[in-house]
Design a protein around this nucleic acid. Sequence first.
DNA 1: CAGCATCATGCAATCGATTTCATCATCTAT
DNA 2: ATAGATGATGAAATCGATTGCATGATGCTG
Lengths: 340, 340
Amino acid sequence: MVTITDVSRRAGVSRSTVSRVVAGNGYVSEANRKAIEAAIAELGYRPNTLAQALRSNRSNVIGAVFVDVGTPYFANMIYGLQRAARPAGKALMVSSGYADQDEEARAVIELIDRSCDGIIVYLERPMRADVVEMLRRSQIPVVSIGHKPSPVSRGQVILDNFGGARAAMRHLLEQGHRRIVHLSGQADFGDTIARRDGMVAALNEFGMNMDDLHIVGGEFHQEFGYSATLDLLNERRDFTAVFAGDDDIAAGVLLALRQRGIRVPEDISVIGFDDAFHARHMWPPLTTVRQPMDALGDAAARLLLELLARPDSGPLEARIDTELVVRSSVAAPAMQREDA
Amino acid sequence: MVTITDVSRRAGVSRSTVSRVVAGNGYVSEANRKAIEAAIAELGYRPNTLAQALRSNRSNVIGAVFVDVGTPYFANMIYGLQRAARPAGKALMVSSGYADQDEEARAVIELIDRSCDGIIVYLERPMRADVVEMLRRSQIPVVSIGHKPSPVSRGQVILDNFGGARAAMRHLLEQGHRRIVHLSGQADFGDTIARRDGMVAALNEFGMNMDDLHIVGGEFHQEFGYSATLDLLNERRDFTAVFAGDDDIAAGVLLALRQRGIRVPEDISVIGFDDAFHARHMWPPLTTVRQPMDALGDAAARLLLELLARPDSGPLEARIDTELVVRSSVAAPAMQREDA
DNA sequence: CAGCATCATGCAATCGATTTCATCATCTAT
DNA sequence: ATAGATGATGAAATCGATTGCATGATGCTG
C-alpha cells in the first residue's frame, strides 16, 4: 500500500505538506503542489480513510437503521438517502432492526461502534434506554424518520399522514361515497393515529363525523385485508368503498372482492396508502396515496448533513407531503349493489 | 470517549493486558481478567473499531456494489447478504452502479478506499481496466454475482438461468403449447444468452427446435412487453403462449392483452421470470420462475467469508437453482382463438 | 531600514488500538 | 539443584494519517 510517506519522499517534501495538498488547505507553493500532485499520480496514492477518520474524528460514514432493509419499501428510501449523501462524500452503512427492540438496539450500537458521523433511524419500537444514553454520550447526531421523535434525535422527518388520509377520504366522498369502511393498520402506530385525524377532517368537511365511518383495526398485511373483507361481506355490511391502511391491505381487499365476484370499482371502490411498488400492477391498478419514500430518505440525509455542518443548531424538522395517485380502483358508487 | 488506556488505568494494568482480554487471546491471569472486565463494564468501554482496523488491517466491513440499490430486486439480495454477514461480525456498505461503467468504477473505488475486507459486485458492465488493476493491487478478495466472472473475482455466484428457462419452456410445452413467443431482455446480457440455451434444451426434449420459437428482443421493461405484444397482435401472429424475459416484461404483456380483451390464461398463457415482488399481485397472478435473490446474496457473502478465512484458496463457485412458481397465468391452449 | 504581515515548510505529538519482544516468576523433569 | 518449558505482564513500536507550533523566507509599509 502506498502511504503519504511514500508520496512525501518521492516529492521531496514532508508529510505535512502532502497532507495540505490532499486536504486542499493551508499554504503550499505552486512548485511543491505540482511535484506532489505528480507523485500522487505516479504512485497511485489514495489516502487511507481509516487513518484519516481516526485522527480527525470524522469517518464520513452515515449509518441508517430501518425496520427491514430487505423490503421494497425501504429500498426506495435507501435510494433517496444515497442521492443526498454521496455528493457530500458520505458513505452509507445500513442495518435492519426487524421491528424488534433488541435487534434495533444491536443495530444502532453497531453503528455507534463504527464511528458513524451521524445516524438515521426509522424505528417501530421506542429506543432502548441504554442505547439512548449511549447516543447521548457519543454526541452523534440522530435524525429519525416517522411519527414519534426519538428522545435523542435532533432532526425529524415527518410524513404528512394527516393530509394523506384526508385526501384519500375526500376523494371517496367527492365521488359520492357515504358508506365507507376503513381497514387500519396497527392502532398504536403513530401513522395510524395521525391518519385518523385526517379522516375526521375530511368527514367534517362533508358534514359527517366519525360515526359515519366503520373502522376495523388490524395489521399492515395483505392477509388482514383479505380476511377482514370476507368478514365484512359475510356480515352483509352495507358499504360502497374501502379505504385500506396501506397497499398490502388493499391487495387483500381486492383479492377477497374478486373471489366473491364483486367488481372494482363498479360495485365497490378501493383506495390504498403508500403507492407501493406493486400498486400499479394490481387489478384494477390501485388508486392510492403516494408516500414518497425517496423524498423521506433524501430529507433525512439533508437534515443530518445540516446537523453535521452546524453542530450547535437547534432541532430540525422536515415535513414531506403525500400525493393522491388516481388509477382505476375508485369510481362513483352504484345505486344498488347485489351482494354475493 | 473512553479508551483502552482509561480501562487499563482503572484496572491497574497495561494496555496490552486489556487488549488481550478484549481480543480473548494470549495469557491473562484470572485476577486481572476479572478486574479488567469489571473496569470495562463500569466505564462502558467499547473498542474503537477504526483504530482496530487501522492497526490490524481488518475493517470487518464488506462492500457491495449493485446495479441499483433502490430497487426491490436488490433489496432482497441485501437481505441475504446481511443474513450471512452479520453473524460473522461484518458490517455492510452498499453502493449503486446504475449500470454505468464509470459509476460502477466510482462505487468500487470508494469501497476500496474505505478498506473493506472484501467486495461483492453485481455489475451490468465489464469492470473498467484501471479498477481491475486497483483491485488486483489491493489484494481485496472479490466475489461477483451473475453471469460473467469479473477478471479479478475469486468467487463467483451463478444463477441457473439455463435450468430456469428450460423449466419455463417445459411448463408451457407440457401444457400443450406449441406456438410460443419469447420476449427477451437485452440480447447481450449474459442472462439472456444462458436462457436461450435452456429454451433450446426444452424444445429438443419435445422434438422441436429453435425455429419453432418466435423471439423478439428488447429490454427488461414493462414498456417493451406492452408494445411488443401489441405489435404481435397487430401482425395477427399465431401464438398461444408468451414467455417473458422477466416479470416486468410480463406485466406489460398482461396489460396489452387485457386492453385487447384477450383473456389470460384462457386465450393466451403468460409466464415470467424472476418472481419479483409484484408477480403475485398481477392479474392473473403470474406463473413465473423464481430467482431467489436472497439466496444469491447469502451465497455471495458465504463465499467471501470463506475467501477471507482461507486467503490462499482457489477460485470458489456457487450455483443457485431456480424454481418454477405456478400461479394462474398458464393453462392449456384453447383449440381456437378469436383475434381482436 | 526596522517592524510586521504573509507565505511556506517541517517537526513532533496525537488519534486508539495491536503486537513483538524482553523480562520475570513458577513449575516440571532430569 | 538446574535447565527448560510455561504463564503473565508491560514497554515500545506501529498502523497512516492530521495539526499545532516553531522557524525561516519574503514582501510591504512608514
